[in-house]
């Protein structure tokens, strides 16, 4: 558990309710990593690329990304992360209500690592988030190499 502390979670989600539910489920899964929550794309990008404590300058991170943001499309954030030299290995988990195949395909093409649709069925959603917790413990390996 201690080694996981180094991975910070960057959650970009404009819906406060969703953000709260995601956080609750992450915590329930036994993940205690820091969660930095941003409600719009601009401030999230600023943190990701410019903040001294952000992932570009300070250690590994995992990005939870909602595709529907008020100021920009989540896919353009994904694109920026995956095209950046320091950040391109940062795992990105796309969390959205869309289950459109074209959209999912596009996210994977852009380099998204996991795509999770937010099911209205809460149990499966919680399951997915818990799976994410397992995933978080797995990604320790590549981030340790950094």
């Amino acid at each position: 558990m201690n080694s996981q502390q180094s991975v910070s979670i960057v959650m970009i989600e404009d819906d406060a309710g969703h953000a709260r539910l995601i956080e609750k489920n992450i915590r329930r899964a036994g993940i205690s990593n820091d969660i930095n929550h941003f409600e719009d794309g601009t401030s999230a990008l600023k943190y990701l690329f410019d903040d001294p404590s952000g992932p570009a300058h300070n250690g590994p991170a995992l990005v939870l990304l909602d595709l529907n943001l008020p100021d920009m499309s989540g896919t353009s954030i994904l694109e920026k992360i995956k095209q950046d030299e320091t950040l391109h290995r940062t795992p990105v988990v796309v969390l959205t209500t869309t289950d459109d195949k074209v959209e999912i395909q596009r996210c994977y093409d852009l380099g998204c690592n996991v795509y999770i649709t937010k099911p209205v069925n809460y149990e499966s959603f919680a399951d997915a988030i818990r799976q994410l917790g397992l995933f978080l413990s797995v990604i320790q390996v590549p981030s340790a190499e950094d």
Partner: peptide, 17 residues
């Protein structure tokens, strides 16, 4: 329909909570 799903996620999520 897409945007309607967003609040529904909350309703159901917090109902479970």
């Amino acid at each position: 329909s897409h945007d309607l799903r967003s609040p529904l996620v909350n309703v159901l999520g917090f109902t479970s909570e």
